[in-house]
């Protein structure tokens, strides 16, 4: 790398650090006491754990957009995907040891994922963490070359990917149709709505993260690239 580039980078980083430090030193005092506000309003929210309440009730619009961003990323990845051969792709290390370990660990991972989702109502946990754990177990499955039979059909995967956003949008729009503000759930229904949205979100987040991994091109490469997994195919 050139000396000029190094100097420019050092100057930019130093200036940036100084500006940030100045901003931290000169920061204004907090106007609102947010924890107290959350504490005061939590009875009407759908969850007793403050972070879940913030995510899915007080600031649910953020979460809605975030699920939209995830879906958008998956859609772009789909658009960039290259033509793949039909049938199951050849991803996976086919070792008996990995398979044995995963068949032992997978039920445990699914259980942990479900527990974390359930725990989100009253203590640390929730849709994001559960989705990440489920995505990790899906990755483990794929690394072992195993597949979930029900997800072989593309339309099922697409439907589940869109499920989180669809349910969330429905939960946002239905109160508006009933004359309330958008995403403003009546206190009696809030708990049910939060649980339904959370389950849908978990499924979509897990599948979305997994899809972003799966769609990374290419599984099978051109003649330049001789992978041990790409066995010669007839005519190709």
């Amino acid at each position: 790398m050139s000396r000029l580039r190094l100097a420019a980078a050092a100057t930019a980083a130093l200036g940036f650090a100084l500006a940030l430090a100045l901003a931290v030193i000169e920061r204004p005092a907090a106007v609102l006491n947010l924890p107290a506000l959350v504490e005061a309003e939590i009875a009407g929210a759908g969850a007793l754990h403050p972070i879940t309440a913030v995510l899915l009730d007080f600031r649910s619009f953020d979460t809605l957009l975030e699920v939209g961003v995830l879906l958008l990323a998956v859609i772009v990845a789909y658009a960039l995907r290259e033509a793949q051969p039909d049938g199951p792709d050849r991803m996976g290390l086919d070792t008996p040891l990995l398979r044995a370990v995963i068949s032992l660990l997978l039920p445990l991972m699914l259980l942990v994922g479900a527990y974390v989702l359930w725990a989100g109502a009253t203590r640390p946990g929730g849709a994001f963490q559960a989705g990440a754990i489920l995505a990790a177990s899906g990755l483990a499955l794929r690394l072992a070359g195993l597949r979930v039979g029900g997800l072989d059909r593309a339309w099922r995967v697409h439907a589940l990917l869109a499920l989180g956003l669809a349910v969330f949008v429905a939960a946002a729009v239905l109160p508006a149709l009933a004359g309330h503000a958008m995403l403003d759930h009546p206190a009696t229904l809030a708990k049910t709505i939060v649980i339904v949205v959370e389950i849908a979100l978990t499924v979509s987040i897990a599948l979305g993260l997994l899809a972003l991994f799966r769609l990374a091109p290419p599984q099978v490469d051109g003649p330049v690239f001789e992978d041990r997994r790409s066995k010669p195919r007839g005519g190709a």
Partner: peptide, 23 residues
């Protein structure tokens, strides 16, 4: 809890953008 929830969403968005960038 409010900034913590924001960071939680931020982490998921960050991993989504990283994965997309890798694709």
């Amino acid at each position: 809890p409010v900034p913590q929830a924001l960071v939680l969403t931020g982490i998921v968005v960050a991993v989504a953008s990283t994965a997309l960038a890798l694709v």
